[in-house]
Design a protein around this nucleic acid. Structure first.
Length: 615
DNA sequence: TTTAGGG
DNA sequence: CCCTAAA
């Protein structure tokens, strides 16, 4: 497909910034359920499968996003689509892309968040209603905002709004559930089609997801109206601001004012059934004309604020938007209960009001990945190669970034946590919590409400499903890379990261040698050690050398070894050493003629040395 | 690029 | 574990 579609929020300006202005504090999660933002870049293949994007593709997209050249649609990962799982299966043994080990945890967390949001929302709304009822039971006629101070300005604003609403542009009904879609736009004509088709594929593959997608699809219509805050002067904006928040502001930034006003409006009771969307420089107000009777709490407002300055030219294709939204809704809520769909609606409300987080730039990626994971950056380039041999996606691997557009749609699935201010995309992340994997990029936001809106990039790499195993057999196991700086003769200092060999690794090595023969290190690496990306073929060779030495050194004189090194390194079990010796001798016999003198000589010599030397 | 071997 | 020569 000829299109690259992208995630919203690629370049969200700071709404709060470090400004002195403070509005109602954003909803923040308790730590237990606050998750970092996770971006996942995937590509939608022609058949609808989602495949993880390569590093290069990620970089490319990052660049494009940074340049505001593209915008990717968001796709909720329910973890049910076949593409992911099949991809995982294909990558098994090498770079298993998505781990499902945390799916349940994530789902749990998500549900916790949903509930939490709902509770908080009700709380807020209650308070607000209380305030309002104190001032006046009829809020539509005499509304007071925030500190209960009567606001003529607000009425004024409302009047102006009303006036502006007369010139509204009527659009096709748009489900309220996925206002996010307004931010998703395509830059080429085929984009939406591609996206839709891909999601169709997803839905077809996701059993429950498809069911919910239709059931939870809202059928109420929305009347969309536009308000051009843009036409207001700074002064007017100031007035509006004051009307909205009940206080003055000194900020001169028009954009900031507009955003803040929009947020303020949606935080207030006055627009309890409207949706505000800032598109480009236009404030769009979506009015709910028909409340969904199934709504959990009909008194809850349906406010939404979508801020997107990147929409310079909207596709203005209501049909596609509709469909997109439906699909998205289905995907997003596919994994949740039907009822949670309405909770999620509330989420959207909050998420609109909340401050959005900026997507990390490539610079961040580079800088932080360097700091965060040296190993990752060190092997960054080789990652593609490592995944290359996987039969599943040769095309995918070989595909240069520039071809992303021509061969598949790149979409970003992401999970944000409100975390105080972020956006929550209710999808169950299947991101592993373990060690970082290199070709899987996760972007997370460390800080939330405060100035620290800067996302941090962590390069997740290595370490496959063997973590569990390694936890068992090695003392340090999967502990951090012990990066030791070793002074070199030339005065420089090189990094030496040490990773203890685990028992499973050793066993795999022995197994590999027995199968492919000693010396076929690259083969062994590729076939038996595909998942251990941190072990190079050279490492295997070195380890084998050590094993050899150990095996021939230990068995003859057991006592001597024990005495000399008690807690040396890993106590390699005798059977394994035995097997090592067998293999070594076998190999010495089987290939003596090959490189006649050397290979045979080495093995034989070693055997003799070991035996005679320690005896 | 992989392998073997020295450090 | 790193480095390098050799294939």
């Amino acid at each position: 497909m000829e299109t690259l579609v992208a995630a919203e929020g690629n370049d969200e300006q700071q709404v709060n910034g470090t400004s002195d202005e403070n509005i109602s504090p954003p909803l923040s999660f308790p730590k237990e359920i606050a998750d970092p933002v996770v971006y996942k870049l995937v590509r939608v293949e022609g058949d609808g499968r989602l495949v993880p994007a390569t590093d290069d593709e990620v970089m490319e997209v990052e660049d494009l996003l940074e340049d505001d050249k593209i915008e990717l649609p968001l796709v909720a990962d329910t973890g049910q689509n076949k593409g992911f799982s099949s991809e995982k299966a294909n990558l098994e043994g090498s770079e298993g892309f998505l781990q499902s080990d945390n799916a349940e945890v994530d789902a749990e967390k998500l549900n916790a968040r949903l509930e939490y949001i709902e509770v908080m929302l009700q709380k807020v709304k209650q308070e607000e209603r209380l305030r309002l009822s104190c001032a006046s039971p009829d809020r539509s006629s005499d509304c007071k905002i925030m500190d209960g101070k009567p606001s003529d300005q607000l009425n004024k604003l409302r009047a102006s709004n009303e006036k502006l609403q007369s010139e509204v542009t009527l659009q096709e009904p748009i489900p309220l559930l996925s206002p996010r879609l307004n931010k998703s736009q395509t830059y080429e004509k085929g984009g939406t089609e591609t996206f839709l088709r891909s999601t169709d594929g997803l839905l077809n593959n996701g059993s429950s997801a498809s069911a919910h997608s239709t059931s939870s699809k809202p059928d109420f219509s929305i009347l969309k109206e536009e308000i051009c805050l843009d036409n207001l002067s700074i002064k007017e904006l100031h007035e509006t601001f004051k009307a909205t928040f009940g206080r003055e502001t000194s900020v001169k930034d028009k954009l900031w004012l507009k955003r803040r006003i929009a947020m303020g409006l949606t935080n207030s009771c006055d627009v309890s059934t409207t949706t505000f969307i800032i598109r480009g420089k236009t404030l769009v107000r979506n009015k709910v004309t028909e409340e969904n009777s199934k709504s959990v709490d009909t008194t809850l407002t349906k406010d939404q604020v979508v801020v997107n300055d990147n929409c310079k030219d909207l596709p203005s294709n209501p049909t596609n938007q509709m469909e997109d939204q439906g699909v998205l809704s289905g995907k997003i809520f596919g994994k949740s209960d039907v009822e949670s769909g309405y909770k999620s609606e509330d989420i959207h409300m909050e998420e609109r009001a909340a401050k959005r987080v900026r997507k990390p730039t490539r610079r961040y990626i580079e800088e932080l990945s360097e700091v965060e994971s040296r190993e990752c950056s060190g092997r960054f380039l080789s990652s593609v190669k490592n995944t290359g041999p996987t039969p599943s996606s040769p095309k995918y691997i070989a595909r240069p970034v520039s071809n992303v557009r021509s061969d598949g749609t790149v979409v970003v699935t992401r999970q944000d946590s409100l975390g105080g201010s972020g956006v929550l995309v209710p999808y169950v992340s299947r991101v592993r919590r373990g060690r970082p994997r290199k070709n899987f990029m996760a972007l997370m936001v460390i800080s939330k409400a405060e100035k620290e809106k800067q996302p941090v990039f962590t390069c997740r790499s290595e370490h496959q499903q063997n973590v569990e195993l390694e936890n068992l057999d090695s003392s340090r196991g999967n502990s951090d890379d012990n990066v030791v700086t070793v002074p070199t003769a030339k005065g420089g200092t090189r990094r030496k990261h040490h990773r203890a060999w685990t028992l499973t690794e050793v066993m795999k090595l022995v197994e590999g040698v027995s199968r492919y023969g000693a010396g076929r290190w690259s083969e062994i690496k590729r076939l038996a050690f595909a998942s251990y990306t941190y072990r190079t073929s050279v490492d295997l060779k070195d380890k084998w050398r050590n094993l050899l030495r150990a095996s021939f050194a230990q068995s003859p004189t057991d006592k001597g070894m024990k005495n000399s090194r008690k807690h040396a390194s890993m106590p390699i079990p005798a059977p394994i050493l035995l097997r090592v010796r067998e293999l070594a001798e076998m190999h010495a016999q089987s290939a003596p003629d090959l490189s006649s003198g050397k290979l045979a000589g080495r093995s034989g010599r070693n055997v003799n040395e070991a035996r005679t030397g320690y005896l």
